[in-house]
């Protein structure tokens, strides 16, 4: 029983570390797309996916540290990402984010 527990714990740690490395590589690939991206919608989508990878990273760190304190952080990143994506989409579509009545 004890050995099974330690074996599963080791498997969990190794798989989490592999996942963190994979997410890190994907962040660099997305960074390339953000900088290079031929059109602005490409950049917007890449930034959106980058936020999702950040959420995944926070979740993986939660698994690694065996804590529930970071769950709020995942929610927080998601909400800020949502507002940022809406702002970017509105800027690309209309050229203005916060509308005024004049002009």
């Amino acid at each position: 029983m004890e050995t099974a527990l330690s074996v599963t714990r080791t498997i969990m740690e190794i798989s989490t570390q592999v996942a963190i490395i994979g997410v890190g590589i994907s962040i660099f690939l997305l960074l390339y797309r953000v900088i290079k991206g031929p059109t602005n919608p490409d950049r917007a989508v890449a930034l959106d996916v980058m936020g999702i990878t950040l959420m995944a990273l926070a979740g993986l760190v939660t698994i690694l540290l065996v804590t529930t304190k970071l769950n709020d952080v995942v929610l927080l990143i998601g909400i800020l990402l949502f507002i940022g994506t809406i702002a970017l989409a509105k800027f690309i579509e209309k050229g203005v984010i916060i509308e005024r009545d004049d002009n």
């Binding site: 507002i83 809406i86 509308e99 005024r100």
Partner: peptide, 20 residues
């Protein structure tokens, strides 16, 4: 961070309904 969330909500309302 609570204040930041509240201002995020206000910014979202500003984006949807306009400043006026």
């Amino acid at each position: 961070i609570g204040g930041l969330m509240t201002s995020a909500a206000i910014v979202l309302m500003n984006m949807a309904y306009g400043q006026e």
